[in-house]
């Protein structure tokens, strides 16, 4: 049984206007790590809005956890290219933000604050931010801000994590560090991930399944399963099998861009 399911989904931002995505069908298992790659403006981010219920499809159906999506889901965590941390809150308070909104945390926050705070500190420590809990976002580097942003997306233990080019603005070394961080978090306590990215190596390294999308209107062109053994180490990125996957995906993207 699939956890996320798209059935022939279309979306036009304006009624009757140009389609942002067209006839998209896909299925995601619970706990699966999915990456979506494609040229810029192909509607990858639109996909995220549909899954999280921020947008309703113009045609077709979106199901999450067996139910048709009819509004914002509360089992979702999101992180974007910009960390979007609130500058007036400390790192810890930024991470705790979802707990102030999502039930059942919201109504129990006052009583169980110290317990939740301990959980947040533990999560921050797990991504290497121990000692930075009480710093403000501008005192953190870009990579650290992004780690905190991912903690914020995970603190309420969402069953679905959606990442929209979360590592796009980071330098290559930091990016690889954060791949490993995300891999470890996911390996420790699997949740379903949908990662939108430009970076094919990132997609192949992290994902179980990679989807390639076409130019606008976005359609799914290829579905490729990455059967590299887990847990994957950064060394895997230098193997022939890995390079083969990246090459093949690169060819698809090249073909899309040429048309």
């Amino acid at each position: 049984m699939s956890f996320v399911k798209f059935e022939n989904v279309d979306l036009a931002y304006a009624p009757g206007g140009a389609l942002a995505i067209e006839n998209v069908s896909l299925e995601v298992r619970e706990g699966e790590f999915v990456a979506v790659v494609g040229p810029s403006g192909c509607g990858k981010s639109t996909l995220m809005k549909l899954i999280s219920g921020l947008r309703m499809p113009s045609g077709g159906y979106v199901y999450v956890d067996g139910r048709q999506v009819g509004g914002p889901l509360k089992i979702v965590g999101m992180a974007f290219q910009n960390a979007n941390l609130l500058p007036w809150r400390t790192t810890l308070d930024n991470v705790m933000l979802p707990l102030e909104i999502v039930e059942p945390y919201r109504s129990t926050l006052k009583k169980a604050r110290s317990r939740y705070e301990a959980e947040a500190r533990q999560l921050l420590a797990r991504v290497g931010l121990a000692g930075f809990e009480d710093k403000y976002p501008w005192e953190l580097s870009g990579g650290m801000q992004q780690r905190a942003s991912i903690c914020r997306a995970l603190i309420h233990q969402p069953r679905l994590l959606m990442l929209d080019e979360p590592f796009g603005a980071l330098d290559a070394f930091t990016r690889e560090e954060l791949w490993c961080m995300l891999r470890d978090l996911w390996q420790l306590q699997p949740f379903t991930v949908i990662l939108v990215t430009h970076d094919l190596r990132e997609a192949v390294f992290l994902a179980d399944t990679v989807y390639v999308m076409s130019k606008r209107p976005g359609r799914i062109l290829v579905r490729r399963e990455i059967e590299l053994p887990r847990p994957r180490d950064l060394d895997v990125t230098y193997t022939d099998a890995f390079a083969g996957h990246v090459h093949e995906l690169r060819e698809h993207i090249g073909r899309v861009r040429a048309t």
Binding site: K74, N84, V102
Partner: peptide
Amino acid sequence: LEPELEDVLRSLGA
């Protein structure tokens, strides 16, 4: 207000 930030909060049901 940054739209992404609004999305983060709305997707939590804010």
